[in-house]
């Protein structure tokens, strides 16, 4: 019996289970980001088009995701997919889908903002040498927008990582859910364990997100010079 409670973290395979939970958290975040960024790039480009109905629909799409809290988004998908649409996906996939759609909404705004801030004469000189609209996006506007949007994108990534903490709400076996199982299993023998387990999870999130925010800050400072 120890009095510190830290031994809970290393008893049995507890630590490797927690790491496994962390991995679940991370792959869900990465996959959601990957899908969301690709989709968001297209949506963002479409939001710079002249077509009014398209712009309006995409704007409403963005505002919906801006207004509804992520917890609620998650439950919307969790309940509506199986009950209304008869789509029965594992909870992990529901989470990836929800987060990806959310990331796409946020990223579309970042992409649009970056695209419209590329100076107008850049677009005009592109058109003047005979580039098609698609070539203009691909070779001139997107590369320039990329440096502008990178810090905001990294910040979005840190938000996605933090938002994965909600996964436990739809019963994904993420790092928090596993932590709770460990706490419950060891509650009798290690009443202090809860402190250390949550402490470790807190630390896990921090070491994933902190380097990212640091990078975003550096890039932001560099962009301003």
């Amino acid at each position: 019996m120890d009095h510190l409670g830290t031994s809970v973290l290393f008893a049995g395979n507890n630590f490797s289970r927690l790491l496994g939970g962390l991995w679940t958290t991370i792959w869900i975040a990465l996959l959601a980001l990957l899908i969301g960024l690709i989709l968001g790039t297209f949506l963002g480009m479409m939001r710079t088009f002249k077509n009014r109905p398209v712009r309006l629909i995409l704007r409403l799409y963005l505002e919906f995701f801006r207004i509804v809290p992520t917890v609620v988004l998650l439950f919307l998908a969790y309940y509506i997919l199986p009950r209304q649409l008869n789509i029965n996906l594992p909870a992990e996939q529901v989470a990836v889908l929800t987060f990806a759609l959310w990331v796409a909404a946020e990223f579309s705004d970042i992409v649009r903002g970056a695209l419209i801030s590329v100076p107008k004469h850049q677009r005009e000189s592109g058109l003047a040498i005979g580039l098609t609209h698609w070539q203009l996006f691909r070779y001139v506007l997107l590369p320039q927008a990329l440096t502008l949007e990178l810090p905001a994108t990294i910040n979005l990534a840190t938000r996605v990582v933090k938002t994965t903490s909600l996964l436990m709400l739809i019963s994904v076996m993420d790092v928090i859910n596993i932590g709770q199982q460990i706490i419950e299993a060891n509650g009798q023998s290690h009443p202090n364990g809860i402190f250390w387990v949550y402490g470790l999870i807190f630390f896990f999130y921090f070491i994933v997100d902190y380097p990212l925010s640091l990078l975003a800050k550096k890039l932001n400072a560099a962009n301003q010079h």
Binding site: T158, K162, I176, P191, F195, Y198, F202, F206, S213
Partner: peptide, 23 residues
């Protein structure tokens, strides 16, 4: 600022609500 911004509210709340009573 770094601690607060780089950790989820959910864990912050769990800490306050479930872990603090232990101490």
């Amino acid at each position: 600022i770094e601690l607060s911004r780089n950790t989820p509210l959910l864990i912050q709340l769990f800490f306050l609500y479930y872990a603090f009573p232990v101490i």
